[in-house]
């Protein structure tokens, strides 16, 4: 099991603090690195990838520092945000060169496997400069995956991809995560992160604002009422019963159901079925309506 560790990491440029005392540990699975533009995501990724020295703290992969330590690239793959590829090479040549530089035992087989993984086999013998943005991105991902690294870091990997390519890339990241790889990808697009990963590291203004499963993060925000959409066989009667419950701070009745605000997630979710049962009301729908990553993210930004 490979872990990436950041221990009290800060990075500053002159008087500007880009990353401020961040500690995190990434294990197998897919993690989204989330934050608004300028939050410090790329700086964190570059430090993890050994392309930036932390001003303070340590960045390690399985206890080996990433800075000035090229040996880490045996178990690390990087897809940087900058769309830089050797356009004069074909995708096959480009990936084959990566395999050779990784000194893999069977470079040809590794190249074919990587091309297949990103669905680029058919176009593999065309020069990269003739590719669309999405194809270039997939070629870069294949080159980063050719040595089957335990850790894969991707900076804004979905940029320039069409919806089908995006879905394919999401599935690829999912599969790699399920197979025990440690995947970290940065994005400022909430839907991307929400679809690929439940686990997030949220960076706001250079600080780690939250870390973990975003639904769990939401539940820990006890100072904000949790919002639920509820439909039942008798909304009005259920509303009367619920308003007497201590964990319920507000009920709104609408044409299509009710919106309930609960101050305590645990107490409310235990009380609701009990109250419904006692009142003889059938619950038809119960959906937490502010557990989306977008709500969590906006709450974190406001905090």
């Amino acid at each position: 099991m490979t872990t990436v560790n950041l221990q009290n990491v800060s990075r500053w440029y002159g008087n500007v603090v880009a990353v401020n005392d961040i500690s995190m540990s990434l294990g197998p699975g897919v993690t989204g690195l989330l934050g608004p533009n300028g939050a410090g995501k790329t700086t964190v990724l570059h430090m993890m990838a050994g392309f930036l020295a932390p001003s303070r703290g340590t960045v390690t992969i399985d206890d080996a520092p990433t800075w000035r330590h090229p040996a880490v690239y045996r178990q690390l793959g990087l897809v940087a945000e900058r769309e830089a590829v050797h356009g004069f090479l074909t995708a096959r040549e480009f990936i084959l060169a990566s395999a050779k530089m990784q000194k893999l035992p069977d470079v040809k087989a590794a190249t074919d496997r990587a091309l297949e993984l990103v669905e680029m086999t058919d176009a593999a013998d065309r020069r990269i400069e003739t590719y669309s943005k999405g194809m270039r991105q997939r070629t870069r991902v294949a080159a980063a995956l050719v040595h089957n690294p335990q850790v894969l870091l991707l900076d804004e990997p979905f940029n320039g991809m069409d919806p089908r390519q995006r879905m394919h890339m999401m599935k690829l990241l999912h599969d790699l995560g399920d197979r025990g790889h440690t995947i970290l990808f940065s994005s400022h697009i909430l839907e991307e992160v929400e679809q690929v990963s439940g686990t997030v590291q949220v960076i706001v203004a250079g600080r780690l604002a939250a870390s973990g499963d975003y639904r769990r993060i939401r539940r820990l925000m006890t100072n904000r009422p949790h919002v639920f959409a509820v439909q039942s066989s008798d909304d009005r009667r259920l509303a009367v019963a619920l308003i007497g419950e201590k964990s319920v701070s507000g009920v709104e009745i609408e044409a299509t159901g009710m919106t309930i605000r609960a101050s305590d997630y645990g107490s409310f979710t235990r009380a609701l079925p009990r109250i419904a049962l006692e009142s003889g009301i059938r619950l038809r729908k119960l959906i937490p309506s502010d557990e989306s990553l977008e709500s969590v993210f906006s709450y974190l930004l406001e905090a």
Partner: peptide, 15 residues
């Protein structure tokens, strides 16, 4: 300048 150096530097090659 164009950033392609990153592809070579992300390999376990002695500098």
């Amino acid at each position: 300048d164009d950033g392609t150096i990153v592809h070579i530097l992300t390999k376990p090659l002695p500098r």
